[in-house]
Design a protein around this nucleic acid. Structure first.
Length: 263
DNA sequence: CTCCAGGTCCAGA
DNA sequence: TCTGGACATGGA
């Protein structure tokens, strides 16, 4: 299948720490799963070549392709840090709620390489990335064997709760940001930072602004004169300043920061 | 060997 | 409300 879009950057999107189930193969050829379907993706100019049992509608939804990014670009234009042109077309990925929840529980105090490895271990053990029900029926020992370490009981408890109360995901989806954040923080292993990742990638709350070590360093440098302000203050500042654009702006800053695109 | 990674939890002030 | 240490794991 062939997909055309004038403002989409596949590699920046898949390599900006949003998803952990994609791997890059040759040059710009990516392999992973979207809404449970195995896919292969390759970008040539404005064309995306797609292999796999997936519809254009699902791809359009997953990669947020209906969104006009001009408001984001114009908001970024006035900031001190200038986003490198190579990042243009980077988009937020609209992921499955449970998978985002699970992946970002795993992500805490961990590095991207290892998170990807754990994702693969889980997918290999269960056949594909496990549902909440599948995880709820397994044992902590299995999750530890997959490399989750001390996060194993966090994921297990969360899976048990969700498979017993499937409605809770829908409740979070319907709730406004603030309320949704409190609910997500209620799960074990989820604090303010992971909650924002889950809300942004898994529940599409565009005002979420995850503050991790990279964003914290970046924000202190460009907005707080390298003063040692708390993550909570950075979060408050960004939410107030960028409102509904905060999520997208965070993604551009995060990618630039992690790729060492500023000094 | 130590340090770090898309942090969170808990205890103590 | 804020701070310090523990926490599995593996790569640098």
């Amino acid at each position: 299948m062939l997909l055309k879009h004038p403002d989409f950057n596949l590699s920046a999107t898949l390599e900006s720490g949003q998803v952990f189930g994609f791997s890059r193969h040759l040059a710009d050829f990516f392999q992973g799963t979207i809404y449970g379907h195995p896919v292969k993706l390759k970008q040539v100019g404005s064309r995306i070549e797609v292999e796999g049992k997936i519809s254009k509608g699902q791809l359009w939804d997953y990669f947020d392709l209906a969104r006009d990014l001009e408001p984001i670009y114009s908001a970024l234009k006035t900031e001190k840090f200038k986003i490198p042109p190579s990042l243009k077309g980077l988009r937020l990925i609209r992921q499955d709620s449970w998978e985002a929840l699970a992946c970002f529980i795993i992500s805490s105090n961990n590095n991207v390489k290892r998170i990807q490895g754990i994702w693969q271990n889980l997918a290999r053990y269960f056949g594909s990335f496990p549902s909440a029900a599948q995880v709820s029926r397994t044992h902590e020992r299995i999750l530890r064997q997959c490399g989750l370490g001390y996060r194993a009981p966090f994921l297990l408890k969360t899976a048990c709760f969700i498979s017993a109360n499937p409605v809770c995901l829908e409740v979070i989806r319907q709730a406004p940001y603030e309320e949704a954040r409190e609910r997500v923080k209620g799960f074990p292993g989820i604090g303010p930072k992971v909650a924002d990742c889950v809300l942004l990638y898994g529940f599409h709350k565009m005002e979420a602004f995850p503050v991790d070590v990279w964003i914290a360093r970046f924000m202190r440098k460009y907005y707080f004169r390298n003063r040692r302000v708390s993550e909570a203050k950075i979060h408050y500042f960004a939410r107030k300043k960028w409102a509904k654009n905060a999520g997208y702006i965070q993604q551009y800053f995060f990618h630039a920061a992690r790729k060492g695109m500023y000094t």
